[in-house]
Design a protein around this nucleic acid. Structure first.
Lengths: 248, 248
DNA sequence: AATTGTGAAACGCTTCACAGCC
DNA sequence: GGCTGTGAAGCGTTTCACAATT
């Protein structure tokens, strides 16, 4: 008799996080490790599954096999099953997974069953591109405040949102109950701005600044390092050339 | 007597690559696996070391210990030593690493000892932010061509570079000997544009489009999935709340 | 005394393989 | 017959611990 195969599936159950810096730096989260840990890799794949499930749903597919889902996101069927099974069992043997319920479930697991107010710090080119990025809003990430070092340099009104000076940060974060921040400032001020965000009450930061942030361990930081991404490509192509695998 | 501790250090030596999709999807590169593989994680950390080494150099530091380098990038001293030792031994026991030579070495390893012409596809908000991103150019990534579906919608001249229609892609890539592409187009056209890039001769792609690309295995793709990054934050914060670790 | 370089141990993620179910 | 769920095996990465070196 199977008693419990679902560990982190339900609200109320304990579910630890191990958010490494994109898997290349050791875990710094101080969240207590509990029963079954969901790895960062699994979480990231969950996000890919969600995108595919939405596609499937929009084309009217009602079920999907682990095989097909794997093909779509570029992983293996076993991996898909392992990932999904760590939250409970949603599939029907012989049939596959029901698309709509699974999409809903993954949405919940990722914490997307609510709106997340977000503060954007830095109204430069990257900041403004992110502000207008349509996929944030459709996932519930609402940029409700924009702050910049000097708001007079940029157009002060973006789509109805005033760009505020940095000293209004704490007030805005508290009044708007913001927990997530996007950091799109120059590298040399990133640390101090990040500290200000944390002091104001922000607990998760998406960092586009080319700087390593040193923050309390209970703050979740996700870096998007554009230069690093290009360098990884450079390394791969160059290694290939050196290995003599080039077309010649 | 130590004969060889340096495996992939020299041009001409074989050096395989294992570029997973940011470590969450299995390897798809068809580069032959040879003597000592450098993991994707190591490569990504190398990029962080490089940034720190540049900082150290600019403040006049002449040596640095694995400990200090680890502190700066947020990893462990053992990890730093392991990473660096996979390319040879650069340190002096008792003293640490000489900053300038190490920086130079890491630059070479990452393939940054040359200029990389880059084609940017998509002149929307994200594309234009990337075009103006100063850290690409300083690392040798030169955006030498910009292509857009309809170049008339956007200002046709950016900093002296004409925005060209998509049908000029192949010509541009070949004439400018471009090997790297940045994809900043809507998700629904990403696959076809990616295929056009590959057909034109591009071998590495930085993909900002919210779509999974299916390309030949010898093409290196690095995805920047902005929504996924936010969702990872959402998951972490929400899991924390559910685990009852919240301040409330 | 300080710090590297590195086998070996520990750890965690992925893959395998098959029982269980539809 | 087809597909999921999952313990066990396999494998790669990280951490440990210490000999080697300055």
């Amino acid at each position: 008799v199977k008693l419990f195969t679902s560990f982190c599936a339900d609200p109320g159950s304990e579910c630890g996080v191990h958010l490494t810096w994109r898997h290349i730096l050791p875990a710094t989260s101080s969240v207590p490790t509990s029963s079954r840990r969901i790895s960062e890799s699994t979480v990231r794949r969950l996000s890919l599954y969600l995108r595919s499930l939405e596609d499937l749903e929009s084309t009217g597919e009602e079920t999907v096999s682990s095989q097909e889902l794997a093909r779509r996101v570029g992983t293996t069927a076993a991996q898909v099953r392992k990932d999904l099974s760590s939250f409970g069992s949603f599939g029907k043997r012989g049939l596959g997974y029901a698309v709509a319920p699974l999409r809903e479930r993954v949405t919940d697991i990722l914490g997307l069953d609510r709106a997340w107010p977000v503060v954007l710090v830095g109204a430069g080119r990257i900041g403004s591109a992110l502000f207008a990025y349509p996929h944030f809003r459709s996932r519930g990430f609402h940029i409700v405040a924009v702050v910049d070092r000097d708001p007079d340099k940029v157009e002060r009104n973006w789509n109805g949102i005033r760009i505020e000076p940095v000293d209004r940060l704490a007030t805005l974060v508290q009044e708007l109950r913001v927990e997530l921040g996007i950091l799109a400032v120059p590298g040399d001020v990133a640390q101090e701005v990040a500290e200000a965000l944390v002091a104001a009450g922000v607990r998760g930061i998406l960092n586009f600044a080319p700087a390593q942030l040193h923050l309390p361990r209970d703050i979740v930081v996700n870096d998007v390092n554009l230069t690093l991404e290009m360098e990884a490509l450079s390394f791969a192509l160059q290694a290939r050339i050196r290995a003599g695998t080039d077309r010649g």
